[in-house]
Nucleic acid binder design. Structure first.
Lengths: 345, 345
DNA sequence: GTAACCTAAGAAAGCGTTTCCTTATAAATT
DNA sequence: AATTTATAAGGAAACGCTTTCTTAGGTTAC
């Protein structure tokens, strides 16, 4: 059996409560006693039992992570390791650990969250995505359980601490960049329309298109079910239009890889025939051929701030706030000025 | 304050111990009482407190994950989400959750493991990597704490349940494949030599080279510090040799992206000038241009089996075992038969 | 020299479960 | 009818810690 606070107390010839106070570095204990107790702890190799402490304390020093359904392919996106790295960094600063439940389906994930919350397994929760009408978010609000969201809540955004990019503006800028290169027929390849980020970026794209006096055409808007079969289909359709786009705004670098590969299959190359620009600037964007023009959204910082916001929320009941993580456009080689009409394929 | 077992007991007019037995579905409780208690739980929205349960039970229903230092760039490798997806799937089947500590440095990570173990925060641990002389592994063995390793332990492999590919054979086969295409000067681009997987693959490569009667040359062996600056340097050196390789075996698909991009920079293209083959077959391998020839190591299954092995270990004290997850070579377009000498660059 | 006040540390009551040990009641055995 | 045996459920200790309340002993103050 592991060594407990009582064993330490006995050896140091003090009461268990004293040992507890030494651990908490309570000023009411004399230096001499502290030293004595610490020696005993050292000698016995004492480590506090976290469950007991959590129980007495009502605090677990752990934060729960809620990912999108892992059945989802999105899960393989390097976005997640990176955002977790950010969360982990901040969590570590404050001695928090991370906790993930393991549901696959929608319902299982929800059940996992309920267990985290009601079972007091975590002190707070970070939602790693933001969807339209999310049941989990509603639940957490009802329970008044501390949580933060990465992305923008679809409803009640002002009541929920959330960490987001200005995706509207980012998309607008990215689109403007393509327009500035002379492109007039610009397609938008989005992801799941249930994700708020998709909506924001689509709106930003639309704004840029309209502001530039270009036609906003529904046929130019495509939503890939991530990057395989469905997406290929979509890209094929897009490029069999009578007036196919000459440039694409794509929701995510990983998708871009899929898009580029599909374009290749139909004999179009990037950036010679089609310019492609996307979001996230994952490490790979730099290494792909061509290197991708991408909006760096500071994934690490999203995670870092999300954890920071949550801890404020837990420790000081801080009021809800919105944190906007800056983005910046990284121009590489996947976009080219539009050729004069005759020169295009 | 949350509703406790006592509240339920009071409402159902039974003792707390009875409620506890109903939760555990103990046969000693009559069906009638069970129904009554369940109604009360339902009515009050009761959820057991996990910390209290863990304390009484000495079991947490959580397994700890130990990753390589997140400072490490390896962290951004989609290997991790995928292996975690596998772990998560098995864990979920048995109602376990996942727990990650948040250290950055070597020491912090070690300290995190000690806290997981001594603090009884988890029932067992999965090491997501295997290194030469790993302090954590030694510690877990000393403590006789349940754990499994993904990869092959450097020492005492027969005493430790581990889930591995036959990396030796996989590398051998991959190299043989290149040899079968006529390549005779084949380089090896490895990762961190502290990782056992690197060693195994290097040995498999060497075996294939020697078996084919080719020269095993040290200059052809390069170890990239993952895929950026250092790696570019290395690749440059490799291709300024008097007799540069015509094909490369690369440790990891992500590295391959770096390698291909560096080759491009020095005017070599894949597979026209250089054939490249690697390991892992991450989703992106298929989408890159050219699509990569890669050994699929079944990452998901590695995670799944690792969790399974650990749970056996926890639940039934199963003896140590080695699980070999099959691999298979996926041939795509990154390798070509070697051109006759005169035709090469 | 006694009352008043500090200070350091102990005793004990939780925290919410589980589980061992009892007890009460009903059924079965003699 | 008295005793044993089953059965269903309750009581209370235990899990390892924190924290409130107390106490003991030493200072200071009058």
């Amino acid at each position: 059996m592991a060594v407990t606070i009582k064993d330490v107390a006995k050896l140091a010839d003090v009461a268990p409560s004293t040992v507890s106070r030494v651990i908490a570095n309570n000023p009411r204990i004399s230096e001499k006693t502290k030293r004595k107790v610490k020696e005993a702890m050292e000698y016995l190799g004492y480590h506090p039992n976290f469950n007991a402490r959590s129980l007495a304390n009502r605090s677990t020093q752990a934060i729960g992570l809620v990912m999108p359904s892992s059945a989802d392919h999105a899960f393989q996106n390097p976005f997640f390791p990176e955002v977790i790295r950010g969360i982990s960094t901040k969590a570590h600063e404050k001695d928090y650990a991370l906790y993930m439940s393991t549901g696959k389906t929608e319902d299982e994930i929800f059940e996992g969250v309920v267990q985290m919350v009601q079972g007091r397994r975590v002190d707070g929760i970070i939602l790693l995505y933001s969807r339209v009408d999310d049941r989990i978010m509603t639940y957490l609000q009802e329970q008044e359980f501390p949580f933060t969201v990465i992305g923008k809540p679809y409803k009640n955004a002002e009541l929920i601490t959330h960490i987001d990019n200005d995706n509207f503006k980012a998309a607008q800028e990215l689109t403007q960049y393509l327009i500035s290169l002379g492109h007039e027929r610009i397609g938008f390849v989005g992801g799941n329309l249930n994700l708020v980020v998709t909506i924001d970026r689509l709106l930003g794209y639309e704004k840029a298109i309209r502001d530039a006096g270009l036609h906003y055409k529904d046929q130019y808007i495509v939503h890939e079910e991530f990057l395989k079969e469905g997406g290929q289909e979509a890209v094929r359709e897009l490029f069999s239009l009578p007036e196919p786009p000459t440039a694409l705004v794509v929701m995510d670098d990983l998708m871009t890889f899929g898009v580029i590969s599909t374009l290749h299959e139909i004999g179009l190359s990037v950036p010679e025939h089609i310019s492609v620009a996307s979001f996230n600037n994952v490490m790979l964007s730099e290494l792909s051929s061509p290197p991708l023009t991408s909006v760096d959204i500071n994934i690490f910082q999203l995670g870092y701030e999300a954890a920071g916001g949550l801890l404020d929320c837990i420790q000081t009941c801080a009021p809800a706030k919105r944190v906007v993580v800056p983005h910046n456009l990284i121009i590489r080689q996947s976009c080219k000025p539009k050729l004069a009409e005759k020169e295009t394929v």
